[in-house]
Amino acid sequence: MTIKQLRAFVAVAQTLSFAQAGERLYMSQPALSLSIKALEDGLGGRLFSRTTRTVNLTPEGHALFPLARRLVAEWDNVEDNLRQHFTLRRGRVSIAAMPSFAGNRLPSMLMHFRERYPAIGITVHDVINEQVVEMVRNRQVELGITFEPASDLSMKFKLLYLDRFVAVVPRDSPLIECTKVCWEDLQTYPFITLQRPSAVRVMLEESLSIGGQKLNVAMESHQLATIGRMVGSGLGVSVVPSLCIQQMHELGAHCIPLANPVIERPIGMLTKADHELSVAAQALADILEQLSV
């Protein structure tokens, strides 16, 4: 059975007229008759008893009618549902993003997406860098926003921008008058940073070790917001990606460019190399790329 044959059968069964059914389906009567005959041949018996004046359902036709009507309705629902997905009038997209991005740059980007595609639902997984990579790898999400991971042929990374790390100090710190802060000066104060296995923590330690320096940690936390509040309260200093500057200011801290060494890391979109994005996910990826220029 084909959907065309079922539509023809339902139309004739509802109208008990080949002429009216043909008009409803925009089909000629010969074409309609051929569809019904093909359906009957395929099933192995007659579905209509026909005379020159009347058309009636056979017992087998009566048995098929409610089933065929439901199948056609379900097909139409599926077709409409998919069409709405393809035209971005329905759907959902899941994205994983590291906290520094999810809590700072992502909300304004999602606002642009919602303004353009208000019917698309969005799920955001605010997780550490390593979990972003795992969620993309395991197909739990279609898109990930992360620092560039180690080379992996199963993954595809698209650069959005380079992020330069900045120093975070209390607003009453003597360092606030500096246009730049070097690590040597910064580490004379209690240093507050993210706990392992945070990618930010690892990057800081690796960058300092290249120059023979060591990260002397006085306090640590799992959340950037907590670190910003701790620095703002005068407990110490920190270093965070520059995409956190606004967040740090809101938490009562002050950000200053960092020098010796300058730390830069690529941030971008991560996808599975062999996975074609859904229409909704591709639309979100396009907006993320446009707004990162």
Rank of each mutant, 00 (worst) to 15 (best):
residue 124 V to S: 01
residue 37 K to C: 09
residue 283 A to D: 04
residue 161 Y to L: 14
residue 104 N to F: 01
residue 116 R to F: 01
residue 139 R to F: 10
residue 80 D to K: 15
residue 47 L to T: 04
residue 48 F to L: 08
residue 227 I to F: 03
residue 275 H to E: 15
residue 17 S to H: 07
residue 132 V to I: 09
residue 220 E to K: 09
residue 167 A to W: 07
residue 51 T to W: 09
residue 292 S to Q: 08
residue 67 L to K: 15
residue 118 P to F: 10
residue 126 D to C: 14
residue 220 E to Y: 06
residue 100 S to T: 11
residue 140 Q to E: 15
residue 268 G to K: 03
residue 91 G to F: 08
residue 102 A to Y: 01
residue 274 D to L: 09
residue 63 A to L: 12
residue 160 L to P: 07
residue 208 L to E: 05
residue 151 S to A: 15
residue 54 T to Q: 14
residue 119 A to G: 01
residue 23 E to Q: 14
residue 220 E to N: 12
residue 194 L to A: 11
residue 104 N to T: 15
residue 252 G to S: 01
residue 252 G to N: 02
residue 243 L to I: 15
residue 101 F to D: 02
residue 161 Y to C: 13
residue 234 G to Y: 01
residue 31 A to G: 10
residue 44 G to H: 09
residue 17 S to E: 08
residue 2 T to C: 04
residue 128 I to D: 15
residue 170 P to A: 05
residue 59 P to S: 11
residue 144 G to T: 05
residue 214 K to Q: 15
residue 205 E to T: 10
residue 45 G to C: 04
residue 141 V to A: 03
residue 43 L to D: 00
residue 151 S to L: 14
residue 141 V to I: 08
residue 238 S to P: 07
residue 247 Q to W: 05
residue 133 V to P: 06
residue 250 E to R: 11
residue 136 V to I: 08
residue 173 S to Q: 08
residue 145 I to T: 06
residue 268 G to T: 05
residue 51 T to L: 03
residue 219 M to E: 15
residue 134 E to G: 08
residue 235 L to Y: 13
residue 215 L to G: 09
residue 283 A to K: 06
residue 259 A to K: 07
residue 57 L to C: 09
residue 36 I to F: 04
residue 190 P to F: 02
residue 233 S to Q: 14
residue 65 F to S: 11
